[in-house]
């Protein structure tokens, strides 16, 4: 049996913090609080362990090792003292998957209405995978995506189906 197009792996142990604030006013404080630069529109910044992603004009998502989440929450609360902002721990609300392998873009292209092959590194695309909301970006030898926790089994199933051996999108 030939190999699947990509390996689908569920990732756990990832902390996620939603930050809502006026980035023009509070950007510097947030950047200092999390130790990363504020990303450009639809962009991401990172240092190897943490990623700060642009989600919306007034929303960022900090991804980091789960153990660092409480500390980062505190740091962010402090950074936004006196500023109108909202910090929420969303670590448990998400299901995260890695789609890795040479044909990972094919798997994404079957489910997400985006040009996966042309997606640049450092760009986070919020969209949908089949019938559920996701965010996806280039990660390692493929892509990482997350969706709602409740849809984890659905996401895993459609990703596995899309990766079925022999179903590459290249013309035959």
């Amino acid at each position: 049996m030939a190999n699947p197009l990509a390996t689908i792996t569920r990732q756990t142990g990832l902390g996620m913090i939603t930050i809502r604030a006026d980035l023009d006013r509070a950007g510097d404080a947030i950047a200092e609080g999390v130790g990363l630069a504020i990303p450009d529109t639809a962009g991401m910044t990172g240092d190897g362990t943490r990623i700060l992603a642009w989600m919306s004009p007034d929303e960022l998502m900090l991804m980091l090792p789960a153990a660092e989440t409480p500390g980062a929450m505190t740091a962010l609360e402090q950074a936004l003292t006196g500023e109108h902002g909202l910090i929420v721990d969303m670590s448990d609300a998400r299901a995260v998957f890695d789609v890795t392998g040479p044909d990972a873009a094919d798997v994404i292209s079957k489910l997400v209405p985006v040009d996966a092959a042309a997606m640049p590194t450092g760009h986070l695309r919020r969209s949908r995978a089949a019938q559920t909301a996701i965010a996806v970006w280039r990660h390692g030898d493929g892509f990482r995506l997350f969706g709602f926790r409740s849809t984890a089994d659905y996401l895993e199933l459609i990703l596995q189906n899309a990766a079925i051996a022999g179903s590459q999108l290249a013309p035959r």
């Binding site: 529109t41 639809a42 209405p113 695309r125 969209s127 949908r128």
Partner: peptide, 11 residues
């Protein structure tokens, strides 16, 4: 106009 993404109607 907020994120610059060209999205299709289903999004």
């Amino acid at each position: 106009p907020y994120c610059g993404i060209t999205a299709e109607e289903t999004e």
